[in-house]
Design a protein around this nucleic acid. Structure first.
Lengths: 165, 165
DNA sequence: TATTGTTATACTCTATAACTATA
DNA sequence: TATAGTTATAGAGTATAACAATA
């Protein structure tokens, strides 16, 4: 196990154990073994676990982090735009914005000229919190590719982006 | 759009549209743009969508397919072992086996010598159904990597496996 | 009549705990 | 007392539909 993941200690082993490994198992995964999509799923589960480990039991989920990151990186976006960017329904977006507003990290501001909608902004405290979380998220992301060389990790990211962009 | 995905017609565009593309969007994804884990998530969503498209509105989910594949590839496995292999709780496993048993694709057989547990087997009909589904699943998996060359697709799979195995 | 956002509601998925039957 | 499986229940997350305010 490499440095980045070793930092996480035993908990990482726990996460890795909870993921079907396909390797040293006595069962035959059949076609699943040959599917890129199945590997994507396993890596996604692993990544989510590693990130959850970093974020701890704070109520801050990977998904909620994404919301704060979008708010921080796009000051004044309307909720409808946030919903579209994160492929969420508007009710789900309302709840996610509520979460950060309740914690003093985001605020809704009236948009002059259209009293139906709000712009969503990060507060100063929200930006601090975002910086703190970014460090954790980067760490979890490095742990995810800890088995790979730097070149391999970059190539992986390139190939994934080629699929989804 | 390449051949494999073009076969899926408009529905694929729908799936791709429901995925945040990161590319031709006016919003700034900030750190998310740099995270392998975020790309993994997007590709996972895309793959699940492509597969759901192939499986149609039959109640057969990617997850349930995995269960039938495991049953078909490992005749006689106990439910506890199925649960471990797919990282499921035992109640969730019970329901998934129920699903296939109700459709005549799987059956529980008493294990001589331990009347607490069952071996789970695919029926002849279940194996037929599995073959039919495998073709659909392969097709969806090819569509997922349709933007990649064969070499790139193989490299992607290799790198993903290096992470999770 | 359409749009933004919220609230109400329901559905899916999953897990934990309690229960039955074996061992 | 422990284990395999099932049932009961609850929680998280999501979506659709209905609603209020505004355009």
């Amino acid at each position: 196990m490499s440095d980045a993941s070793a930092e996480l200690g035993d908990s990482l082993s726990d996460v890795r154990h909870r993921t079907p490994t396909l390797a040293d198992s006595e069962v035959d995964y059949g076609l699943l073994n040959e599917l890129t999509g199945f590997s994507v799923k396993l890596v996604w589960i692993l990544g989510r676990g590693l990130l959850a480990l970093e974020l701890g039991d704070t109520g801050i989920t990977p998904h909620r982090f994404s919301m704060l990151e979008m708010i921080g990186s796009n000051p004044g976006l309307q909720q409808t735009q946030l919903a579209a960017a994160l492929a969420l329904s508007r009710p789900a977006t309302t709840l996610a914005v509520d979460f950060w507003e309740e914690r003093g990290c985001a605020e809704r501001r009236r948009i002059p000229g259209d009293r139906r909608s709000f712009g969503v902004f990060a507060t100063a405290h929200g930006m601090q919190e975002l910086e703190r979380l970014r460090a954790l998220v980067r760490k979890a992301d490095r742990a995810l590719t800890a088995n790979l060389s730097d070149t391999e990790a970059r190539e992986l990211h390139r190939l994934l982006r080629k699929i989804h962009r």
